[in-house]
Structure formats: C-alpha cells, structure tokens
C-alpha cells in the first residue's frame, strides 16, 4: 500500500499533527535561547517539547497504523515513557542546580538558603 492511497482527510490530519509537533518543538528551542536563567529554561523541555513530541508520535501512530492495517503500539509506549521520565529528569537537574547554587542572584525570587 502506498501512502498516496490514503484518504485525504487522514493525510491532512497527519500533516497537521506533524506541523503542530514541529512548531512546539521549535517553541521549546526558542525558549531555551530566550529565557534568562537555568530554572526558567528548565520549563521549556518539560512542557513545550513534551507536547511537540506527543503530536509527532500521534501522527506517526496514525500513519503506521493505516499502512500496516494494525494498531501500531510502539508510539503509545514511547509517549507513556516520555511523560513518565520528563518530570524526573527535570527534577534531577533542578536538584543538581540548587546543590551547586546555579542561578543564585538571578531573576528567580525566593532562592532557597541552603
């Protein structure tokens, strides 16, 4: 089965998901470049990119499910792992940064004492 035999609506939906996903990944990267301190930059990867990658994965899921004729579950598993691991890695990075005093005296208020 070639991709061109897909119904137009499905093609449109998949393209929309891919473009939206790419857009959010781009916004996440812009956030990395524009935000001032480490703790603010931490917000980009945990959120904007999560949704971006989520959209891409749903697009991929639809595409391959249609092509193979069976539900493709790999993407669903990737999504689950992504949502389970993103907060943990953000937490660990924040902990390490606090421990080393990164961003002390920066724009973030109420920086913890110890």
């Amino acid at each position: 089965m070639t991709p061109s035999s897909m119904p137009f609506l499905l093609e449109l939906l998949i393209s929309l998901l891919l473009v939206t996903g790419a857009l959010f990944a781009l916004i996440g990267s812009i956030g990395l470049a524009r935000l001032q301190d480490f703790f603010m930059r931490l917000h980009g990867p945990t959120k904007a990119s999560t949704l971006g990658l989520g959209c891409l994965l749903i697009g991929s899921l639809l595409y391959f499910s249609f092509q193979k004729g069976t539900v493709s579950v790999h993407e669903a598993i990737v999504t689950v792992f992504l949502f389970a691991t993103a907060p943990v890695s953000a937490h660990m990075m924040a902990k390490a940064a606090l421990f080393r005093g990164v961003g002390k005296g920066g724009p973030s208020r109420n920086y913890p004492e110890n």
């Binding site: 959010f24 916004i27 996440g28 812009i30 956030g31 524009r34 935000l35 301190d37 703790f39 603010m40 917000h43 980009g44 959120k47 904007a48 999560t50 949704l51 949502f83 724009p107 973030s108 208020r109 109420n110 920086y111 913890p112």
Partner: peptide, 25 residues
C-alpha cells in the same frame, strides 16, 4: 492540563519572555 499548560508556556515564551517574574515557593 498538560495540553493547556503547553499552550500557556508556549505563549509566555513567545510573547512575554522579558516580563516574566520567576520565583521559588
């Protein structure tokens, strides 16, 4: 909520990145 928060954060990054007041609590 994740969907909503993504939109909010995306908007803040794009349009208000200089007026943000980050902080701990």
């Amino acid at each position: 909520d994740i969907l909503k928060s993504n939109l909010i954060v995306a908007r803040r990054i794009l349009f208000h990145s200089r007026q943000l007041q980050p902080g701990f609590f």
